[in-house]
């Protein structure tokens, strides 16, 4: 059974149709990359998968582990194993980082019938995971994403992913805003989490990220449709020729 199956997905924001029939199947252990011009619907797809309100599925289905998630709210999808690393992580002034991380981890644990995480043990787990991603202790004490630099926000997304251990991770332009060293650290972070049971969908503009997180499949999204799929060579082709040829074909 595929891990994530996107079937003829049409979705609108407000009254505006954006996704126009997307088909995509991700099996456990696979890494898929989506590339595409600005405004082609990549983030919209990510939000629709994550269950954001206001993004209406007008046709088609999304199945996680064979079950449709369309009736599930964002929090239920997350507890079922879906994770979205945001292109633009949201600042939460007044929400302490540690209590946020603990609430997220506990929500998942309770859903799985496990006990809440031990307070002190959790702080240690977070510190260690943060250190591996080059996140300073001081950042952990601040309000979520408040006063973080662009790159710090992206690392913090991957920290959350590391703590939540999702079965299906969607990374929306996690590479943008990262310096070369950070790109390597974050990619190593993702690769370390990756296992045979997990699927990853990487949204990116740059083939450079795909040197680190090596995709099994690459898809080109244009005007809300997958206009071409291939292997890693497709990413290289895009880098050379741009999207012109693909969008015309659409």
């Amino acid at each position: 059974m595929p891990l994530l199956e996107i079937k003829n997905l049409h979705a609108s924001v407000g009254d505006k149709p954006i996704l126009q029939g997307i088909n995509l199947t991700i099996k456990a252990g696979e890494i898929h990359a989506i590339m595409g011009p600005n405004g082609s619907g990549k983030s919209t797809l990510a939000y629709v998968l994550a269950g954001r309100e206001g993004y209406e599925v007008t046709e088609g289905d999304i199945c996680l582990d064979g079950e449709s998630v369309l009736e599930m709210e964002a929090d239920a999808r997350a507890r079922a194993g879906l994770f979205l690393a945001f292109q633009y992580p949201v600042e939460l002034p007044g929400v302490g980082g540690m209590s946020f991380l603990r609430a997220a981890v506990n929500a998942k644990r309770l859903a799985q019938g496990a006990d809440e995480v031990d307070h002190i043990a959790f702080v240690k787990i977070v510190r260690e995971a943060a250190a591996r991603l080059g996140i300073k202790d001081d950042m952990l004490k601040r309000a979520v994403n408040v006063g973080f630099s662009g790159g710090e926000k992206k690392r913090y997304e991957i920290l959350q992913m590391a703590l939540l251990e999702p079965s299906m991770a969607i990374l929306d332009e996690t590479d943008s805003g990262l310096d070369v060293d950070a790109l390597r650290i974050v990619s190593e972070g993702v690769n370390a989490l990756k296992n045979d049971a997990m699927g990853v969908l990487v949204i990116t503009h740059y083939q450079r990220l795909l040197d680190y997180i090596i995709p099994d499949h690459v898809h080109i999204l244009a005007d809300g449709r997958v206009v071409k799929s291939g292997d890693k060579a497709l990413a290289l082709e895009v880098e050379k020729t741009g999207y012109g040829g693909f969008t015309d074909a659409a």
């Binding site: 994550a50 964002a74 994770f83 945001f86 992580p89 609430a103 929500a107």
Partner: peptide, 14 residues
């Protein structure tokens, strides 16, 4: 709404 969605996307109930 963005903040609410961000929290929910981490599995935290509404």
């Amino acid at each position: 709404a963005d903040q609410l969605f961000y929290l929910k996307s981490r599995g935290i109930s509404t």
